[in-house]
């Protein structure tokens, strides 16, 4: 099935309580699939087409604040519209899953795949000091798997999770193994606004605190959560890094292509390896730093003008030369041109 359809089906099977969305290419199949599949008959899941991405993310806020598993999806321009809501969700410490099937930008840009929303996804995106947990799938299988994983992390940390994917993975068809149907939750978190019963104090979901000292305390609490994420939830994969002299760093679609580039490079006698961050926040700083001590050069490959490369440079602390190779505007790089880029940057 298509990556977008896999996300939709995975949401039903993860026991999601609701999806709120608004159509935008290249991710409309998620809403279309859910409407056609009638999950209210299968699990009781609510699916609603909102009047805008802004309304959709605020519906996510309302549902998440009731302690429910709520998911939304969009693509770059729509994700920009959701930033206000994401900031409120992060500031109210609500769990949810947000899928960004990235297309090229800025502005209306193109409907073709890109990875140009990295900064927005991993640095916060909206106003205020906050982070999303960002998962980067590289296959239709991971598109499906990361929905359930996303809910698990979102509820464990009371934090919004973004699945940062792109138009190529959204539209790509692959075989996918789907998990068995999980039942929807029947017991909700104790902070949820489910109606104040006499045995407890009222629950209030808000991100407002006019007392500066309290607001600072809350900011420090959020930062502690993010440090805990960095200590415990970093996920990454590596390919042929044991003896690598040149390291490619890439996520999502770019990582998929780089796997082929590693093989092509090795056929040419270039000892290449690949580190693929699976979580973009928290970023795999430690494994990168360790590899930086062993390799002669690092090439960050992204479908952007170079965003993740900044985090790679921060992680390696100047220990080794770090370069960037990217295509923009919806163009996907070929494995060959990435091998050429290794040569041009490091083998002159």
């Amino acid at each position: 099935m298509k990556g977008n359809e896999a996300i939709a089906e995975a949401a039903i099977r993860a026991g999601a309580d609701a999806y709120f969305g608004y159509p935008i290419t290249p991710q409309s199949e998620i809403l279309e699939y859910l409407m056609a599949e009638k999950p209210h008959e299968r699990t009781g899941m609510v699916v609603l087409q909102a009047e805008s991405e802004i309304a959709a993310i605020n519906m996510v806020y309302g549902g998440a604040a009731c302690g429910r598993k709520v998911i939304t999806s969009s693509s770059s321009p729509g994700i920009s519209l959701k930033q206000e809501g994401l900031s409120y969700i992060a500031g109210s410490e609500l769990p949810c899953v947000v899928v960004n099937v990235v297309r090229g930008g800025p502005g209306l840009g193109t409907i073709q795949p890109a990875q140009s929303d990295y900064f927005q996804a991993v640095k916060g995106g909206g106003h205020g000091d906050y982070r999303l947990i960002v998962l980067a799938p590289q296959s239709v299988q991971e598109m499906a798997d990361f929905v359930d994983l996303g809910f698990e992390l979102a509820f464990r940390y009371r934090n919004p999770v973004m699945i940062l994917t792109d138009g190529a993975l959204g539209q790509m068809m692959e075989k996918v193994w789907l998990q068995e149907q999980k039942p929807r939750m029947t017991i909700f978190p104790d902070w949820a606004t489910t109606g104040k019963t006499p045995d407890r104090e009222r629950n209030v979901i808000t991100s407002l605190d006019l007392d500066s000292a309290e607001q600072e305390k809350f900011n420090l609490k959020l930062q502690n959560k993010y440090r805990k994420l960095e200590a415990e939830e970093v996920r990454f994969e590596h390919t042929d890094t044991e003896d690598a002299e040149y390291l490619l760093v890439a996520y999502g679609t770019s990582a998929r292509i780089c796997q082929k580039s590693v093989r092509l490079a090795r056929d040419k006698g270039i000892k290449a390896g690949l580190l693929r961050p699976v979580t973009l926040f928290p970023f795999p700083k430690k494994p990168l730093k360790e590899l930086a001590a062993k390799v002669k050069g690092i090439l960050a490959v992204e479908m952007s003008t170079g965003q993740m490369v900044e985090d790679v440079r921060l992680a390696v602390e100047g220990k080794v030369q770090v370069e960037h190779y990217g295509r923009m505007g919806g163009i996907i790089p070929t494995p060959e041109e990435i091998v050429d880029a290794i040569g041009k940057n490091f083998l002159k």
Partner: peptide, 15 residues
Amino acid sequence: DIDMQEAAHGRAPAV
């Protein structure tokens, strides 16, 4: 003294 949610400006009907 009831459960309440604070919405972003204008978004209460969506919430």
